[in-house]
């Protein structure tokens, strides 16, 4: 029986292996990464088309538009978090592995974030320019997305785990995840709006960090529990 120290070392190695595998798989089907980014771009473009291309109106709405677009794009990509593993049986392998399931879930969520939320964060300044976001607010937008999109992936993992075995569970996944997303949305857009008016936005960032910490600690536990329950 391996000592706990040895096991936890192997746990870390297992996580790295899992991350490498997920990233390799993601790069093999680039649509998985590019489609949410295209969706992000298109959704953000819908707002000027549907409301008004007026500069003042847009610059007021820009933080909300960009954040909601990012939120919806992450939701779209969450479906594939556990589903493909469920389909080819690797999820059962994960469930049977000696490593703590929450840790493995965290690894999967990390690679998912790298291929979704992180890419959206990189794209965001482009959208900020298109939607006339004040220059002062672009850095805060970037930072809030950097802190907030991992929370979106983490909280979404819970819903993804609960719906992994449900046919066409995508909409249900959205329903389950949105209440968890609302506080993140509120504080993130609050930060960007405050920065746009040259007001302090550190407080908002602290709250986003709190959500990130809570998500890192609790979401893997809930998602792992859900995976075990669903796959009994």
């Amino acid at each position: 029986m391996a000592t706990t120290e040895q096991q936890s070392m192997r746990g870390g190695a297992a996580c790295l292996a899992l991350i490498k595998r997920d990233l390799t798989l993601a790069f093999r089907s680039p649509g998985q990464i590019v489609n949410p980014m295209a969706f992000f771009l298109m959704v953000a473009s819908l707002f000027p088309l549907g409301i008004a291309p007026d500069r003042d109106v847009l610059s007021q709405l820009a933080p909300g538009i960009i954040w909601i677009g990012a939120l919806l794009s992450v939701l779209m990509s969450l479906d594939s978090l556990f589903k493909s593993d469920q389909d080819d049986g690797s999820l059962d392998q994960l469930l049977m592995s000696p490593h703590p399931l929450p840790l493995l879930v965290l690894a999967k969520v990390f690679s998912h974030w790298l291929t979704s939320g992180f890419c959206l964060t990189i794209m965001a300044p482009l959208l900020a320019i298109m939607l006339h976001l004040p220059a002062d607010a672009i850095l805060p937008l970037f930072v809030t997305l950097l802190l907030g999109t991992p929370v979106l992936s983490l909280a979404g993992a819970i819903g993804a785990a609960l719906t992994v075995r449900i046919q066409r569970g995508g909409v249900l996944l959205t329903l389950l995840s949105l209440p968890l997303y609302i506080p993140v949305l509120i504080f993130a857009t609050g930060a960007v709006n405050a920065a746009a008016e040259s007001l302090p936005w550190n407080g908002h960032l602290l709250w986003l960090s709190v959500f990130l910490l809570l998500g890192l600690c609790l979401a893997p536990l809930a998602a792992a529990g859900a995976l075990r329950v669903i796959n009994e």
Partner: peptide, 9 residues
């Protein structure tokens, strides 16, 4: 959400 999840499983 809870009612929908109950119905879907």
């Amino acid at each position: 959400g809870i009612i929908a999840l109950r119905g879907a499983i």
